[in-house]
Design a protein around this nucleic acid. Structure first.
Lengths: 255, 255
DNA sequence: GAGTGGTCTAGACCACCTT
DNA sequence: AGGTGGTCTAGACCACTCA
């Protein structure tokens, strides 16, 4: 006898115009979000609940939800439900601060979980970057990072064992850059960053409790020291709604 | 009696494993792309054609197509069909080259179409950036840019009329930065760039012959001259599969 | 174990692009 | 005018999460 809503979650198709139903539903939910009715992190009613009393097919409801997901307004936890997305973190690839730092600076709480840490054979892409044979050993770190408890990215980091022998003996849940500096005296002099929109594949999606195919952002960072040696090679898979890139650059004096 | 294929486009569900059908279909198409069978720009068979002989519902076929779209491998022209995406353009927000320049440098052919050019009232966002009243006049330029004939972005540019009086009299299909420099002696000393994944809304989607909701990338650029005056305020809506961001930065000497 | 989203079918009609 | 994708319905069953 749980108080199952018999009444529609929205009064009536709510919108009008000649736009498709799913967009009207979208608009309605957006209004609920903007009104503060649904704060960040809140869970939406279930898809079937959203249908009740409306005569709308579940597929249509889902269409609206997918639209909102693409816009970055909501996200889903696989087979759990739909939630309102928190505001994105601003990320500046030009700065040298790590994840822990800039998330904290923005008044949010960062967390890191190390999923695996091992000496593993280099895959194709990593081998090319390091200029070594495919299968040659590299420290390989897989970590999940969260903001305010929400998993937002998984990353694979590769470090050459000749550069930082015994790396895995150190605590790996904090800033790797810090460890390399403090324990090995290695600091970064140059950063190469590539980013592009992607879809999360099975492995990354699973680590983020997302569905495979969820829109994401892939960031590949290669950092070098003053001698041009590779310090880290890092691939980060982000939920696409979790970040916002900001760069501020002054023109070089002459050039 | 057109030679309508009675046979399935793929021999059989092609894949296996315990993954969902739509992913098997996806995998099959990926293989066709990788094999060179479907070159960039090629049109896929119609959704109904992809069904023939397979016993698979159209919705499932579409699921596979959406997946490939999210991955950036294919794109659609609204109500026309699905096409193989060409490789992305590499964009470096750190460099001062404009669209025409870096697209050409990469061996591709850039095109620009001016959709509208007028003196219009500033909307909220622009007014804040320029520090003027909402509704105050700004030169407003809407352009569509294409690569090898494929529309990849639409942009809204705002320029202060006090900075560049008579701007609209010049040819606007080339580099605006060049015009500002050559005709008004204004050059850019600082660039502020913000980017985030988004979904194309009705207006932008229409200009790109895309469906509203198509994944996109929004780039907002504000450029300043040496005196700190705003030179351009530019909002670019990109098809998400059309670009790839690349930044290469050296650490400042001391800090 | 109840409830959630994930997958899938088999239709239908429409708006629009293409020729 | 014919064909395309876009929207929508009304079911069904499954895998998984969560309490």
């Amino acid at each position: 006898m749980a108080q199952t809503a018999q009444t529609a979650w929205w009064t009536q198709p709510a919108a009008l115009g000649d736009q498709p139903h799913y967009l009207s539903i979208r608009d309605h939910i957006v209004r609920r979000i903007e009104s503060g009715d649904l704060p960040a992190g809140a869970k939406l009613p279930s898809e079937r609940q959203l249908q009740t009393g409306t005569g709308i097919a579940r597929g249509t409801i889902r269409e609206a939800l997918f639209q909102l997901e693409a816009e970055g307004l909501i996200y889903r936890r696989d087979r759990s439900g739909w939630y309102i997305s928190p505001p994105p973190i601003v990320y500046d690839p030009t700065r040298w601060a790590g994840f822990m730092t800039y998330v904290s600076e923005q008044g949010r709480t960062p967390t890191t979980t190390t999923l695996s840490a091992e000496l593993a054979g280099a895959p194709q892409a990593a081998a090319e970057v390091f200029g070594i044979e495919v299968g040659a050993p590299l420290y390989t770190l897989r970590r999940r990072r969260s903001i305010d408890g929400r998993a937002v990215l998984v990353e694979d980091i590769r470090v050459s064992p000749s550069l930082a022998p015994g790396l895995l003996k150190h605590p790996l849940d904090g800033s790797l850059t810090q460890i390399l500096k403090r324990e090995y005296g290695i600091s970064v002099a140059r950063n190469r960053v590539d980013m592009w929109p992607c879809a999360l594949t099975k492995a990354e999606a699973a680590a983020l409790a997302a569905k495979p195919g969820t829109p994401g952002l892939l960031i590949v960072r290669t950092s070098f020291d003053a001698q041009g040696r590779i310090v880290e090679y890092d691939r980060e898979y982000w939920r696409h709604d979790a970040m916002h890139i900001h760069v501020d650059i002054s023109v070089p004096p002459v050039a």
